[in-house]
Amino acid sequence: MIQEPALPPGWEMKYTSEGVRYFVDHNTRTTTFKDPRPGFESGTKQGSPGAYDR
């Protein structure tokens, strides 16, 4: 089984109701579709995929 590298501290991976993966940075309280791990580009969309909830 291939294991992906861990997200940076304070980051979480979530999915929209449509199943699109996005990332929550709890450090800055922002969201992005761009994977924060080096070498992982998950898309070019920018903006908030939804309300920030902790």
Rank of each mutant, 00 (worst) to 15 (best):
G43H: 12
A51I: 15
S48G: 12
G47A: 14
D35I: 10
E41T: 08
Y15H: 04
H26N: 05
T44K: 15
R37M: 04
V20K: 09
K45L: 10
D25S: 01
P9N: 15
R54M: 09
R29Q: 08
P9W: 08
G50D: 12
T16N: 07
P36A: 00
T16Q: 02
P8N: 08
N27T: 05
L7E: 01
T31S: 05
R21S: 07
Q46I: 11
F40C: 10
T16Y: 01
A51V: 11
K45C: 11
D35V: 03
K45E: 11
G43R: 09
L7K: 01
G43V: 08
F33P: 01
L7Y: 10
M1R: 09
D35C: 04
H26I: 05
V24L: 11
G47N: 06
Y15A: 11
F33I: 02
S48F: 08
G19Q: 05
P5I: 06
E4K: 10
K14P: 00
F33G: 02
Q3A: 10
E4P: 10
N27I: 04
E41Y: 14
E12S: 10
T32M: 01
Y15P: 01
R21E: 06
T28G: 03
G47Y: 05
Y22N: 01
T30I: 10
A6N: 15
D25C: 02
D35F: 03
V20S: 09
Y22R: 01
P5S: 15
T44Y: 08
H26P: 02
Y52M: 14
T44Q: 08
P5V: 15
E41A: 09
G47H: 08
W11R: 01
P36Q: 00
E41Q: 10
W11M: 03
D53I: 05
Y15C: 11
D53T: 09
R54Y: 10
P38G: 12
T30V: 07
G10Q: 08
Q3S: 13
I2D: 03
P9D: 15
M13H: 05
G50E: 14
E18A: 09
R21A: 10
S17L: 06
G10A: 04
W11Q: 02
Y52D: 15
A51F: 09
E41R: 09
Y52S: 14
K45M: 14
G39Q: 14
A6K: 13
M1L: 10
F23M: 01
P8F: 04
A6C: 15
Y22W: 02
T32W: 02
K45G: 10
R54I: 02
K34D: 07
P9Q: 14
S42N: 10
Y15T: 13
F40N: 05
R37N: 06
P9S: 13
I2E: 09
P8G: 05
Y22E: 01
T44C: 13
Y22G: 00
Y15I: 10
E12A: 07
K14A: 14
T16P: 00
G39P: 13
Y22V: 02
I2M: 09
R21L: 09
E41G: 11
V24I: 07
T30F: 05
G47T: 13
W11S: 01
R37P: 06
Q3I: 15
R29L: 06
R29C: 06
N27R: 07
Q3P: 10
Q3H: 08
T44H: 07
I2L: 06
D25N: 07
E12T: 05
K14R: 11
L7R: 00
G19R: 07
N27W: 02
M13Q: 08
F23Y: 11
G10Y: 06
L7H: 01
I2C: 07
K14T: 08
L7V: 04
P49T: 11
G43M: 08
S48M: 12
D35E: 06
Y15M: 06
P8L: 05
Q3W: 08
P36M: 01
S42E: 14
T31K: 03
P38I: 15
T32A: 01
G47L: 10
T32G: 01
G19L: 04
T30G: 03
M1Q: 15
Y15N: 08
G39N: 08
N27D: 03
G43D: 11
T31I: 01
V20R: 08
S42K: 10
K34Q: 09
G47S: 11
G43I: 09
P49G: 12
E4T: 05
F33R: 04
D35M: 05
D53S: 10
H26V: 03
V24C: 04
R29D: 02
P49Q: 12
G39A: 14
M13Y: 07
D53A: 06
T28C: 04
T30K: 06
H26L: 04
Y52I: 14
T32P: 00
T16M: 03
T32N: 01
Y15V: 11
G43S: 12
G47V: 13
H26A: 03
K14C: 05
M1N: 15
K45H: 06
S17I: 06
G50V: 12
G39D: 11
T30W: 02
Q46W: 07
P36R: 00
K14M: 13
Q46G: 13
T30H: 05
S42Y: 09
A6S: 14
D35Q: 04
G39W: 12
Y52C: 13
D25W: 00
S42C: 10
F23I: 00
T28S: 08
Q3K: 15
R54C: 03
W11H: 02
S42L: 09
R21M: 11
Y52T: 14
L7D: 02
F40Q: 09
V20F: 03
M1E: 09
R29I: 02
G19S: 06
W11N: 01
Q46A: 11
V20M: 10
G19Y: 04
R37W: 04
I2A: 08
D35A: 07
K45D: 12
P5L: 14
T44A: 11
F40A: 14
